[in-house]
Design a protein around this nucleic acid. Sequence first.
DNA 1: TTACCCGGCAAACATACGTTTGAAACATAT
DNA 2: ATATGTTTCAAACGTATGTTTGCCGGGTAA
Lengths: 213, 213
Amino acid sequence: MAAQTGTVQRILDTAEVLFAEKGFAETSLRAITSKAGVNLAAVNYHFGSKEALIQAVFERFLTPFCTALDARMDELAEADEAPGLDRLLALVSGLALTSQAKETHRIALFFRLCGLAYTQAQGHLRRYLREQYGAVFKRFLRVLNAAAPDVPPMELFWRIHFGLGAAVFALSSMDSLRAICKSDFGVELGVADVNQRLLPFIVGGIRSGDAAS
Amino acid sequence: MAAQTGTVQRILDTAEVLFAEKGFAETSLRAITSKAGVNLAAVNYHFGSKEALIQAVFERFLTPFCTALDARMDELAEADEAPGLDRLLALVSGLALTSQAKETHRIALFFRLCGLAYTQAQGHLRRYLREQYGAVFKRFLRVLNAAAPDVPPMELFWRIHFGLGAAVFALSSMDSLRAICKSDFGVELGVADVNQRLLPFIVGGIRSGDAAS
DNA sequence: TTACCCGGCAAACATACGTTTGAAACATAT
DNA sequence: ATATGTTTCAAACGTATGTTTGCCGGGTAA
C-alpha cells in the first residue's frame, strides 16, 4: 500500500508497449521483464499470472476513461440540451485523447489494445471487460439512441459497431497508415488530424442508411 | 502433381477454421493435425513450416478473389460507363460473397482472417500479402479515385481505410454481433443482411466529409 | 523381381514458455 | 539490535511448442 517501488509501473509500461506491438500470446513474460529491467518472477509476484497482467494493463487505460465518460454523461443528463450525434462522438473522442496521454503516441497504443482485445482469443479478457465496463458502454449506447431518434435502435446498433470498427482498425494501425500517407502524399498527419477525418466519416456512416431501411 | 490424397486439403480446411477461431500463435500444429486426422509431421512435410501453412491458407482465399477482381476491373476499363462508388463497393462485396463460399459461413472466416492478418504480429504475413496482392489493391484504389473525383485522393485514402476497418472489424466479429443482435432485438440476421447495412454505411462515410475538408 | 521414390507414421529433439521455489536483501517497527 | 513482513533474485520445474528423424508401406518403371 506504500509508494510504488517502480517495479509494478515499469512492468505495466513495458507490457503495454509490447502487447500493442506484438499481441498477447506473442509477447513472453521474459521479453517484458528483461526489457523492463526487472526480475522474471516479479510479474507473478505482483500480478499473480500473465492473464492478470493483461487485465491490469487494460484497467490502467479504461478505468480513468470510463469514469470520465460516466461523469460527462451525468452532466449531460442534467442539462436540457439535446446532445447531438456528432457532438457525442467528439466528446468520447476528446475524452480518449485527454483522459490519458502525455504523449499522443499513447492514444494509438490504447486503440491498438482495444482492437487486440476484440480480435485476439483471450476469452478471459472479453469476459473481464464486459463485466467491468459493459454498463458504461450500454449507457452510452442509450444516450446515442436518444441523440438519433430517427435511426431505429437495431440499425443504430450495427452502425455504431461499424463505426467502432473503423475507429479501432484505423487507429490501431495508424502508425502504418501515417507512414503510407507520408510516402504517397508527402503529408505528415498527427493523431488529431486523423481524428478530424475519422469523426465525420462515422457520423456520415451512421446518418447514411435512411434511404435503404 | 497427381490427384491430392486429401491430406493437404484436410490440413488447409482445418487450419483455416482454427486460425479464424483462435488466431495464429494460439493454434498449435498439433491441434490442427489431430482435428484433421492427419499425422503431425504432415504439415512440415507438405508446407515446410507453420509460417508457410499460414500463407497457404491465405493464398487459397485471396488468389481466386484477386484474379476475379482483376478481371472485373479489366471489364470496367473497357466499358464507357462511369462505375459509381456504391456500385464499385457492391461489386467487391459481391465478389467476396461468390468467389468462394459454398457455405455463407465461409465469408465470415475470410474476413476474420483478414482482420487477424492486420492485427496479429506475423510480420511475414503482412510482407507476403503486400508483395502478392498489393498491386491489385492499388489498382482498385485508383479505380475508386476515378469513381469519386470530388474527393481528394488523400481524403479518399483515409476514408477507404476507415471503411475497410468497419468491414473487417464488423465481419470478423460478426458471429458475436449477430448473437447480441438476436438476444437484444430478437432479430436473426444473415451475412447478406449485415452486408446490406454495411455498404451504405461505408458509402455514406466516404461521401461525408465534404463539409469539413 | 528389383529398384526407387513418395506419402505416412511414431518417436524423439531442442527450445521456449508460464510458473514455482527457497534463499538473500531490504525496509520498518518494536 | 532484533524481529517481522515485503520485495528481489537466480535457478529450477513441468509442459507445450515447431521441427526433425528413421522406418514402414505401396505404388511405378525398368
